[in-house]
Design a protein around this nucleic acid. Structure first.
Lengths: 260, 260
DNA sequence: GCGTTAATGTTAAAATTATAACATTTAGTG
DNA sequence: CACTAAATGTTATAATTTTAACATTAACGC
């Protein structure tokens, strides 16, 4: 009977909603059925709950335990991101107030922040906030507003004003496209205001992008390349790539491009 | 050698920072050691990573997969919370703009919101935001500010103003203490401003508390009991309990207390 | 270099979890 | 009421994960 199966799953989902895991054994007891029935519910019905080594967890929980495992390839693709952030972290100093942009690029940076004694992170991204909230040594300021699921970030009218009120030391900005002529761009328009405000306020502006973004233009323009003090990227030939992909660029001076 | 173990864990933690799980096998390969060494790292060193059925997950991820399992007792204690929220949800209607307070009381309510077609949730709590962010049918407005880990919520100067700008329909407020004479109170002072602003703005004010909070006074007072239109609680004798625990209360009229 | 100790690897056994097959119960139908 | 089919339970078996013991390797001091 399909209906009862759905009821059980709803019950379990509600039990898991506030976080945590539930052992299959406990789940079975909670629903007063056998473990096998719970297993069958999970495989038969489409559900947000997944079974991980005998324990039920919410699969869709943000940043949480997704169904997909990081395979080796993903892990090595992660390596690239990680190295990129390793270079970026060289610019961070004790006591800094950092603006951290949304997206996945800067995520590997965050866990590294635990090595510092005291930092402040300003962000408008939920995934960034979650990662930073777990760090006891880092003060977190989240700029709220209406949530945009696509970028896991918030947008609001007075975000620019809120950013300008903060004493941001260094802005770490990510981008989806970088072109010498057409400038630096991203996908979502609501990201433009916070990025621009951070660039305007910060004492030091770092653009953190992997080389695959060079020569690419995305819908939302938010800065010229020379608005940044430093461009942190991952390939040796990145500056050349940047030049070759755009047309005429004699007068534009690339800032100090960091290449390990 | 302790140092290398820590290095490996750092590497793995960074790999997991952006969410996801890593199979023990892949973790071992990533670090170029045997699975056994990873196991030992995990048991020897204190770390935020936990092993769940052969997969590495971040244990401290907010609302995420904590190390503790919900035992039966916790699950049944959850039952109480769940029933409380079941009563609260009766007041929610299609299209509502809800203010959801911080704390764990209202968490079971959130997954129930998926049954509606369209809702808006306003909150200043990170755990609430995370749960709501996963719901495609609910618009999320997060009120940001400085993060307070103790209550998983944010505080800022202009939060009251931000709340008053929003058209909040119903405010669902939780509390740590309710006393007829001394009013409604919570633990943290930074919660007072948002709670009061929500109470001031909302068209309908619901206090959602289990009966164990009656007769209790906590440091931060934020409202009188009759500031609320509805008190949702879980025990039959709750209103009586409320009366008996305070001293003289002839003139105070308890609003419509919901008891199933 | 040698001996010592910590770190890591290997292997086998134990415990747990997953899968499959078949038995039993329950709900619905004529 | 008997019959059918879906749902659930039970059991055995396979696969995986965990634990423990011992072997091997690497680091360090003298």
């Amino acid at each position: 009977m399909n209906g009862r199966s759905a009821l059980r799953l709803a019950k379990l989902q509600e039990a898991l909603a506030s976080g945590g895991t539930l052992h299959l054994r406990d789940a079975a007891e909670l629903c007063d059925v056998s473990e096998m029935t719970i297993r069958r519910d999970l495989t038969t019905q489409p559900t947000a709950i997944s079974l991980l080594g005998g324990r039920l967890v919410m699969a869709n929980y943000p940043g949480v335990t997704p169904i997909y495992d990081l395979t080796e390839q993903q892990a090595s693709h992660y390596q690239a991101k990680y190295r990129l952030c390793q270079r970026a972290i060289a610019y961070i100093e004790e006591g800094d107030t950092l603006f951290i942009d949304c997206g996945s690029t800067l995520m590997p940076l965050l866990s590294q922040l635990s090595h510092f004694h005291e930092l402040t992170v300003v962000t408008y991204a939920l995934n960034v906030a979650n990662a930073v909230a777990a760090l006891p040594n880092v003060r977190l300021v989240l700029l709220g507003g209406l949530f945009y699921a696509a970028s896991q970030s918030f947008g609001s009218d007075n975000m620019a004003a809120a950013i300008e009120r903060l004493g941001i030391n260094k802005a770490l900005i990510s981008a989806a496209g970088v072109d010498l002529e057409r400038g630096v761009s991203c996908f979502h328009f609501h990201e433009v205001a916070p990025k621009q405000a951070a660039i305007a306020t910060a004492m030091q502006r770092l653009l953190v992008v992997d080389a695959s973004k060079f020569g690419v233009v995305r819908p939302a323009y938010f800065a010229a390349l020379d608005d940044f003090d430093v461009v942190v990227t991952d390939e040796e030939g990145a500056p050349q790539l940047l030049k070759s992909n755009s047309r005429v660029v004699p007068e534009i001076v690339i800032p100090s491009v960091t290449v390990a």
